[in-house]
């Protein structure tokens, strides 16, 4: 029986997010909150491992109260249990402070049920860093395996996992001891439509919610803004590029003009069939 924990986050859908031109901040009201797309694959992979080996899938998130919705989405995918840590003290956390807080929650979850495997999405679409997963692994002192695009085997008795890590030009097969932490690529799986019983369960699902005071051994100076070594110094709109020359005249002439420009770099263009 495996206990797999997926760490997930609710994010504004940056695809549709609008920028407030006055403050240069994301107008959060303009963007629906969704489960971070990469995390859907993390949860799906956990659910698949449960189907293969039996066990429990737990999800964990840190966020404000509305983030419960993201946990419900995970239950739709097939998660059994959800935990959320929510407290003003967590606000403003960068990746270092986030991995600290999540690690404290993972300690507590592992007292309830020992953890065999942790899975995170490759990155979030609002933070875009991919740093939290490896950060958690370091804090728990378990091996981080990033860019995983296939889980070959989890052998709980033998205490090992074999996965594929994506490389720029292929992949590597890595064996690790358990527990370990994976961050997964989107291509690792496809998330199917959720079955009706999951949807029904999810609609009413209430996760366990912990505040800082519910966690043990917490050094408050390592939480939230206070515990974050990085700060956002400034935000600014990217400079508007100057723009080039729009060719004029009838279409034929425009194409001719363009050919003249391009043929100044004639040596770049391959002569078909080879110039032998």
């Amino acid at each position: 029986m495996l206990h797999v924990v997926a760490c997930i986050k609710q994010v504004p859908d940056t695809k549709v997010a609008k920028l407030n031109p006055k403050t240069n901040t994301i107008d959060r009201a303009s963007a629906p909150a969704i489960l971070n797309p990469y995390d859907t694959h993390a949860v799906e992979e956990a659910v698949r491992l449960k189907k293969r080996y039996g066990g429990t899938v737990t999800v964990l998130t840190m966020g404000p109260p509305p983030a419960v919705k993201a946990i419900r989405r995970c239950v739709e995918i097939g998660a059994d249990e959800g935990y959320m840590i929510s407290d003003r003290a967590f606000a403003g956390a960068d990746t270092l402070a986030t991995s600290y807080a999540l690690t404290k929650a993972l300690h507590k979850i592992s007292q309830i049920r020992p953890i065999d495997l942790i899975i995170c999405g490759k990155m979030t679409i609002d933070g875009d860093t991919g740093q939290v997963g490896p950060g958690i692994a370091r804090r728990l002192d378990i091996p981080p395996l990033t860019s995983v695009n296939k889980v070959v085997e989890i052998d709980k008795e033998g205490g090992s996992a074999v996965v594929h890590r994506k490389l720029e030009d292929g992949y590597e097969v890595v064996k690790s001891t358990l527990p370990c932490l994976l961050t997964v690529e989107k291509e690792i799986n496809e998330v199917p439509y959720s079955p009706m019983p999951n949807l029904i369960k999810a609609a009413r699902y209430q996760p366990t919610i912990w505040a800082v005071s519910d966690l043990e051994d917490v050094d408050r100076t390592q939480l939230g803004l206070k515990g974050s070594p990085t700060i956002v110094g400034s935000v600014w709109a990217p400079p508007k590029p100057q723009g080039g020359e729009i060719l004029q005249g009838p279409v034929n002439s425009q194409v001719d003009q363009l050919m003249d420009i391009l043929l100044q770099k004639k040596e770049l263009f391959a002569v078909k069939g080879g110039a032998s």
Binding site: T95, R138, L167, S228
Partner: peptide
């Protein structure tokens, strides 16, 4: 910011307890 560079920097930053800016 390659897969190796990001992997390494994320892990090292945690142990060094310092800030890391991505990408």
């Amino acid at each position: 910011a390659t897969s190796t560079g990001k992997d390494l920097a994320s892990a090292a930053a945690t142990d060094l307890a310092t800030g890391l800016t991505a990408d």
